[in-house]
Simulated assay, not measured.
Amino acid sequence: MSAAGRDHASATAASDVAAAVREADFVRLVARADGDALAAAGVLARALDARGTPFQATVARPFEDADRGTDADLTVAVGHGGPADESVRGRPASATAFKAVQELGVEPDATLALAGAVAADDPGAIPSAPERAGVERRPGVAVPVADLADGLAHTTLVHAPFTGEEGRAADALADLDLGDAVDEEDRRRVASLVALTVAGDPGATERATEAVERALRPRVGGPFETLGGYADVLDATARERSGIAVALALGGDVREAALSAWRDHADRAHAAVRGADASRYEDLSVLRDAAPVGTVARLAADFRSPEPVTLALAGGEAAVRSTDGRDVADAVAAAANAVNGEAVGRGDRARARIDDADAFVAALREAL
Rank of each mutant, 00 (worst) to 15 (best):
A9M: 03
T12H: 07
A14Y: 01
A14E: 04
A18N: 10
V21K: 02
E23D: 14
D25R: 15
L29T: 02
V43L: 13
A45E: 09
F55D: 05
F63I: 08
D65L: 13
A66M: 10
D71E: 13
D85I: 07
S87R: 15
A93W: 01
A100Y: 03
L104W: 06
E107T: 11
L112Q: 10
A115I: 10
V118D: 03
V118Y: 10
D122A: 15
E136Q: 12
V143Q: 00
L152D: 04
A153M: 01
H154V: 00
H159K: 02
A160R: 03
A170T: 06
D177T: 08
L178S: 09
L193D: 01
L193I: 07
T205V: 14
R207V: 06
L216W: 12
T226Q: 02
S242M: 07
A249C: 04
G252C: 00
R263Q: 14
R268W: 08
H270R: 07
Y281P: 00
Y281K: 09
R288F: 00
A291E: 15
R298I: 01
R304T: 13
R304C: 01
L311H: 10
L313Q: 03
A314N: 02
E317W: 01
A350W: 05
A352H: 03
A352I: 04
I354F: 05
D356K: 09
D356T: 05
A359M: 08
A362C: 07
A367D: 05
